[in-house]
């Protein structure tokens, strides 16, 4: 298949592949930009983390997919490290977001003053009362 592309017998396929590479890369960089706008404009730590850890992850995964397609289709070079990078980012970025959020809550960072409910606070209070009764 790759040798056919290189000989130029399927030049239409090459145009379609170009379109997909450009689409993935542009959409990914726009997702990064939107994540940054969220990080700048949202009101407290938790909402900022929500923006950063989801949108930036999806954007970078899309950019890495575009890069993989570029090197595979146009250069004929199958790079397994890019696939490993996509899988690793998909696994670790939500985990680091969760850890930072929990650390912020436990070290006493306040929620936004217009947020309506805080279930974890009531749960912590209930657990504390039960342990003091015991």
């Amino acid at each position: 298949m790759l040798s056919i592309w290189k000989r130029g017998l399927l030049s239409n396929v090459s145009v379609i592949i170009d379109f997909f590479i450009g689409f993935f890369i542009l959409v990914g960089s726009l997702f990064c930009l939107i994540a940054t706008i969220g990080v700048i404009r949202l009101p407290d730590v938790y909402t900022r983390n929500h923006a950063a850890s989801k949108a930036a992850t999806l954007g970078v995964m899309s950019i890495l997919l575009g890069t993989f397609l570029y090197f595979y289709a146009l250069e004929g070079h199958f790079n397994s490290r890019l696939i490993l990078g996509i899988v690793f980012l998909f696994m670790t970025s939500p985990i680091s977001g969760h850890l930072i959020n929990r650390a912020a809550y436990n070290s006493g960072v306040k929620l936004w003053d217009k947020s309506v409910r805080d279930d974890l606070k009531e749960y912590n209070k209930k657990v504390l009362e039960k342990s003091s009764v015991d």
Binding site: S29, V39, V45, A52, A56, V60, L64, L89, S93, I100
Partner: peptide, 21 residues
């Protein structure tokens, strides 16, 4: 401090994208 750590983490993720590009 948590804001700064979140932003630094996102900077690292952006650096990955810039390296690929």
């Amino acid at each position: 401090v948590a804001d700064r750590v979140i932003a630094l983490d996102a900077i690292g993720v952006n650096l990955v994208a810039i390296t690929a590009l």
